[in-house]
Amino acid sequence: MDDPLNGNHTRLILPALCWSRYRPDFYAVTTDLSVAGLRFRAASIPGLGETLTCSLRHAGTLEVLVVHCNKAAFVARVTRADVAIPVMVRRLLDLAEDQDSDPTPRRVHPRFVPDRPDILVTTASGVQVPGRLINVSASGAALQVDIRLEPGMQITLGRTPATVARRFEDGIGAAFLEPLARENIGPHVSL
């Protein structure tokens, strides 16, 4: 039998506990969903045409009909749910969308530990304090400073204008007002 999910499918990873009147409980994990149904990976594979009850974490309980199976996975079509099927489909699609979004900011530029980490930090009011660079990229730097600098403050790192982007326990993350030229980036960086 051809795999019914070779077309458009949406990635969805949810743990599930499945059972039926004729089989003991077993664990499975959804891998994706499509118009054909939900695909599950499991160590115990039910038979084609078997009806199961599956409790999916964060989604609810479903009654499903197995429409495709192979050695490691099976596809099941939802026949009944603890809510209306269109509501369940929307819930599953929302969960898939939540899983697809990546709230973790990604670094655009590589970070380097400078050969000369000591730097002079100057605030907009002219106060100068020594700092110690932790790392530097084309777009900013992380550094240790002994005074409290608030996010949004304008500062100068050496001769490079920047804004305090975030604070952490012993220092700050600063974003340069203008990215550094690629040839100026590396352990030899001079701000």
Results as ranks from 00 to 15, higher is better:
Leu133Thr: 14
Pro105Asn: 05
Val113Met: 09
Pro130Ser: 14
Pro105Gln: 09
Thr104Arg: 14
Gln128Lys: 14
Gly131His: 07
Gln128Trp: 01
Ile134Pro: 00
Thr123Pro: 02
Ile119Val: 15
Val127Pro: 01
Arg111Gln: 04
Thr123Gln: 12
Thr104Glu: 15
Val127Cys: 11
Ile134Lys: 03
Ala138Gln: 15
Thr122Glu: 15
Arg111Trp: 10
Phe112Asp: 03
Pro114Gln: 03
Pro117Gly: 09
Gln128Tyr: 02
Pro110Gln: 07
Val113Glu: 15
Ile119Lys: 00
Arg106Met: 15
Pro117Thr: 13
Gln128Asp: 06
Pro103His: 12
Thr122Arg: 10
Ile134Leu: 05
Val121Gln: 07
Asn135Leu: 05
Leu133Pro: 02
Pro110Ile: 04
Pro130Gly: 11
Phe112Ala: 01
Val108Ser: 02
Pro114Lys: 03
Arg106Asn: 05
Pro114Asn: 00
Ala124Ile: 12
Phe112Gln: 00
Pro103Ser: 00
Val136Asn: 01
Val108Trp: 02
Arg107Trp: 01
Ser125Cys: 11
Pro114Ser: 07
Asn135Trp: 06
Arg107Tyr: 03
Phe112Arg: 00
Pro117Asp: 11
Pro110Arg: 02
Asp118Gly: 01
Arg106Gly: 11
Thr122Tyr: 12
Val108Leu: 04
Pro105Val: 01
Val108Arg: 06
Asn135Gly: 06
Arg132Lys: 13
Thr104Pro: 02
Ser137Gly: 09
Gly131Val: 10
Val127Asp: 15
Arg107Thr: 05
Asp115Trp: 03
Pro110Ser: 09
Asn135Cys: 06
Pro117Val: 15
Arg116Pro: 05
Arg116Leu: 15
Val108Ala: 12
Pro105Glu: 14
Pro105Gly: 12
Pro110Lys: 03
Gly131Ile: 11
Pro130Arg: 15
Val136Trp: 05
Ile134Glu: 09
Ala124Met: 12
Leu133Phe: 12
Pro103Phe: 00
Thr104Val: 13
Pro130Leu: 14
Gln128Ala: 13
Pro110Met: 10
